[in-house]
């Protein structure tokens, strides 16, 4: 589509450009309005909702940080995502590799089990899963959430590691084995470093999923001290129904970590998302 015409600014391209700009404004609209109004007083929001704030009312942020236990929730979210990701990466990298290297009836059976399980929608298992988590004392704990996410995430990750290992030549592993490495050492020292590109993709996909997931923590976590960022935001919204400055500043604060990550790692994230979508 790059060589439409010789004129640099054909009317068609200008029209498309204008439409793209308007969609960009649509994407930014809620974020900008939330940001602008999060610095206003309550009465100012009602008198002029579009204008910039007359002065920056930081008290809103203080109020929401305190009532949603912002830093506590942030830490909870970070802990759960990290624990879940660690489990997913370690469990499924070695499993995906082994399934590719020890071919046979057994590996086909196990691999099919992982792949077929991807068809099970979360809605269909959430109630029994809640029961199991309660019996195993995994519900309402941060560690438990990490374990549950590992279990839900490994199917897809095994599939992706398996596909990636297929393209790695056997020579290095054979050399390591001849040099006397056992299975675990071969995997740890030789294979795993080669899996880093696909690990990055799997990491990005799963972190975005766990960080932004709402329904599972909503079911599993009952104590407010263990709430994730989203649960605290949800609770605050219910509690301060009319205090928009506090709510909006809470929304900005909960969106902030992901926006920072996006600004810093934007290229890697887009690349990871594209690969993840096409391989999964």
């Amino acid at each position: 589509m790059n060589h439409t015409s010789d004129t640099r600014y054909s009317p068609r391209r200008i029209l498309i450009f204008a439409l793209l700009i308007s969609y960009a404004l649509f994407c930014l609209f809620p974020l900008v309005l939330a940001l602008v109004n999060s610095f206003k007083t309550r009465s100012e929001i009602f008198t002029n909702i579009i204008a910039l704030p007359e002065h920056l009312e930081f008290g809103n942020y203080g109020r929401s940080i305190k009532s949603m236990r912002y830093f506590r929730s942030l830490l909870n979210s970070a802990f759960i995502s990290t624990a879940g990701l660690t489990g997913i990466v370690f469990f499924s990298s070695i499993a995906g590799w082994a399934l590719c290297r020890f071919k046979g009836k057994l590996s086909t059976a196990i691999f099919s089990l992982f792949v077929l399980s991807m068809l099970i929608p979360f809605n269909a298992i959430m109630i029994p899963l809640y029961r199991i988590a309660t019996v195993l004392h995994l519900s309402n704990t941060l560690w438990g959430m990490g374990w549950i996410y590992s279990g839900l995430g490994v199917g897809m990750a095994v599939f992706m590691y398996h596909g990636f290992v297929k393209g790695i030549p056997l020579d290095l592993e054979d050399a390591a084995r001849i040099d006397g490495c056992n299975l675990l050492m071969t995997f740890k020292n030789v294979v795993f470093p080669l899996l880093l590109p696909i690990t990055a993709t799997i990491g990005i996909m799963n972190l975005l999923w766990m960080w932004n997931d709402f329904l599972l923590p909503l079911i599993m976590l009952q104590s407010p001290s263990r709430y994730t960022l989203l649960l605290s935001t949800n609770m605050l919204f219910g509690k301060y129904a009319s205090d928009w400055p506090a709510i909006l500043s809470a929304l900005i604060l909960s969106a902030l970590p992901m926006i920072i990550v996006y600004v810093l790692l934007q290229k890697h994230i887009i690349k990871g998302i594209t690969e993840g979508a096409l391989k999964g």
Partner: peptide, 30 residues
């Protein structure tokens, strides 16, 4: 070879069966 395969896939299989397969089966009973 099968034992090695099982050893390598065991951690993934355990969490996965606990969180996905067993709930799916339990669902039918519930």
């Amino acid at each position: 070879r099968n034992l090695q395969l099982l050893a390598c896939t065991a951690p993934a299989l355990i969490v996965f069966i606990t969180m996905k397969i067993i709930p799916a089966v339990m669902g039918f009973w519930y």
